[in-house]
């Protein structure tokens, strides 16, 4: 990889102050960024390593939310009693990311900031209606993902934590690419207190989004059959060597049905 400078700040303020140009990047778990640097697909002037910032770590429950620090590793979310007790679907999702070694290094903030169209966490951010908290503001999950690898984050803005509302019941079902574990499609279905149903989809489109047709159908009848009966349009869905848009469209309904079944619906 190309040479770069390296900084390891110990506070959020210090980290943000080090981002003085577009060519300086944050480094979290590095499970996407370091392979990208090795391939010379990116050549930042400097990396600001977030690994020394304690304030970015940790999981806590606050009322009807679970708050996860941006620097929290996937394995920590997967093994967290707090997460398992409040949102078992989120712990399950984290346990399905990549492989054990990726989960031991990769972080939720890194994944959500990167916004890979096939990453798992975006389905949870959308499906649970999470709020992305940064050093500057709070961003509603629905407004956060904007395009392929493109988010509402501004240059130098740092995700500090993500707040997930606790659903009445939720489940995540994905169809994983066998070699990488990335979602060819992944669906988080959640029924929130009060009965509203949210469906977050990753892998199918350039960025994670809500499947409103599924939400309407499941609000009326929270059953696998109701999910399977919904026809998803293939327009604008991803096409690659793994799956056509039509295949992904079909997967979304099938995975939503599996998720509803896993909810006990």
């Amino acid at each position: 990889m190309y040479a770069f400078e390296y900084h390891r700040p110990s506070s959020i303020d210090e980290a943000v102050a080090l981002i003085t140009s577009d060519d300086i990047q944050f480094l979290s778990g590095g499970q996407t960024l370091i392979p990208t640097l090795k391939q010379r697909l990116a050549m930042p002037d400097a990396l600001v390593d977030l690994g020394g910032i304690e304030a970015l770590r940790g999981i806590r429950r606050e009322g009807d939310h679970v708050i996860i620090g941006a620097g929290t590793r996937h394995a920590e979310v997967a093994a967290s009693d707090t997460v398992a007790g409040a949102i078992p679907a989120l712990a399950h999702l984290a346990s399905q990311i990549g492989d054990a070694q990726v989960r031991n290094r990769g972080t939720i903030g890194g994944s959500v900031a990167n916004a890979d169209p096939s990453a798992d966490y975006p389905a949870a951010v959308i499906g649970l209606g999470a709020t992305v908290r940064t050093n500057r503001r709070e961003i509603a999950g629905d407004d956060y993902f904007q395009d392929l690898f493109t988010t509402a984050l501004e240059p130098g803005e740092l995700i500090t934590e993500i707040a997930f509302p606790i659903p009445e019941v939720a489940a995540y079902a994905k169809f994983a690419q066998a070699a990488s574990g990335y979602a060819i499609a992944g669906v988080m279905v959640a029924r929130m207190p009060g009965g509203a149903v949210r469906v977050g989809v990753t892998g199918a489109a350039p960025y994670a989004l809500r499947a409103t047709a599924l939400e309407v159908a499941l609000a009326a009848d929270f059953s696998p059959a109701a999910a399977k009966a919904v026809t998803i349009s293939a327009d604008g869905l991803n096409s690659d060597l793994h799956a056509t848009p039509a295949y992904r469209a079909a997967l979304v309904s099938v995975l939503a049905a599996r998720a509803v079944a896993a909810c006990g619906g």
């Binding site: 390593d49 690994g51 031991n104």
Partner: peptide, 16 residues
């Protein structure tokens, strides 16, 4: 093993 957890040493910078 890095602090007891398995990691890919090719996806980790030495300075980390």
């Amino acid at each position: 093993l890095l602090d007891g957890c398995s990691v890919k040493s090719c996806a980790t910078l030495a300075v980390q």
